[in-house]
Amino acid sequence: MSNFHVVVLGFLIGIVGTGTGGAMTFFLRKPSKRFLSTILGFAGGLMLSVVTFDLLPHAFETGGLNVGMLGLIAGVLIVVFFEDILPDKERINNYLKEGIIMGFAIAIHNFPEGLAVGSGFMASSSFGLSIALVIALHDIPEGIAMATPLSIGGVTPFKNVMYAILAGIPTGLGAIAGVYMGEISPFFIALNLGIAGGAMLYVTCGEMIPESRDLYRGRISVFGMIAGIISGIIITRVL
């Protein structure tokens, strides 16, 4: 596969993956608080699982524990700073803020994923394709995690898809870097993965899961979260 095709594939992975997750909001037509609580809990559990069992372990394996933890702490601090400069007026804005921060974290995360795709194809086409498939599947729940709070906050389905697509574009940019830079520094990849993991961990634990409980006080949000964690384990371990 030529370098041009690898770059195009990198963009398609990010756009289709996160865009598909964002497109789920087309099916949300005046949903009940019970349903939204379940979906938000599921998205939170899914992201918690992916971050814990896939993203951070990969960062530790790539650059070592110290580099991964440095990125994780930096990711948390970046989100805290980013959160403080966003307006915090009404509850609906909290959901919008949550979706924006999650989109920011996903965009950071997608760049090193693109690096992995580009570097994988430089090794062999079969290896590159396997990495591309896994990343595309991983991007779908990330799009869901970003789109759900935005949808609750009042963002239209069309805009939700557009925002999800924008968050996926860095995958293509990472693929360009992976192809043309040849050998990518493990330190750089691990640091970026750690930053993305820390950012997502903060938003998931501090915003998504608590607010899923606030939306509906029954057990359904907990069941949704557990289902999300199980789904994340399947995605990270089976694929």
Rank of each mutant, 00 (worst) to 15 (best):
I101E: 09
L28H: 12
A23R: 01
E98Q: 09
A23L: 06
A43H: 08
P157A: 09
L133W: 05
I108T: 02
M122Y: 04
G68N: 04
G103V: 09
L72V: 09
I108G: 01
F11Y: 13
K89D: 05
I101A: 13
I233W: 04
G103T: 00
H58N: 15
T18M: 04
E90W: 08
F187A: 03
F11G: 05
S151Y: 14
V222W: 12
G153D: 05
F188T: 14
D54H: 15
I73E: 00
L115Y: 02
L55Y: 05
A147W: 07
G17F: 02
P170T: 08
F27Y: 05
D214M: 10
A74Y: 06
F104E: 10
V238L: 15
G218R: 02
N160H: 09
F60W: 00
R91S: 15
A23N: 02
S212N: 11
N66D: 03
K97Q: 09
N3H: 12
G197P: 07
F81T: 02
I209C: 12
Y163I: 11
I176R: 03
M162F: 14
G45R: 06
G103N: 03
T62E: 07
I144P: 14
G21K: 04
G45C: 11
I106R: 00
V7N: 01
A145I: 11
G68R: 09
D214A: 13
E113S: 02
I169A: 10
G41I: 10
I78V: 13
V7S: 01
S119M: 14
F111K: 01
E83I: 02
S125L: 10
G103C: 08
I230C: 03
V16Y: 02
I106A: 10
I233N: 06
F188P: 03
V161P: 09
I140E: 00
L12M: 15
Y163H: 08
V238I: 11
G71Q: 07
G44L: 07
I235W: 03
G194D: 13
V203P: 14
G178D: 09
E207N: 13
S119K: 08
A107W: 03
P57K: 02
S212F: 11
L239S: 00
N94W: 12
K159V: 10
A167N: 13
M102T: 05
I101V: 13
F27H: 02
H138D: 08
S185I: 12
L56K: 00
N192L: 15
G75Y: 02
A147V: 14
G114P: 10
L46S: 12
A147M: 10
R237K: 14
F104R: 00
T25C: 11
I135S: 01
A136T: 05
M69Y: 06
I169Q: 05
C205E: 07
M122R: 09
I176D: 01
G218L: 11
G194E: 08
H138M: 13
F53K: 03
G174H: 03
A196I: 10
L70G: 13
G68K: 08
S212G: 15
R237T: 12
V134E: 07
P141T: 09
S124C: 06
L191V: 09
L193F: 12
E211H: 15
G21V: 13
A145N: 11
E142Q: 10
V203W: 08
G178W: 07
I169W: 05
V80K: 00
G71K: 05
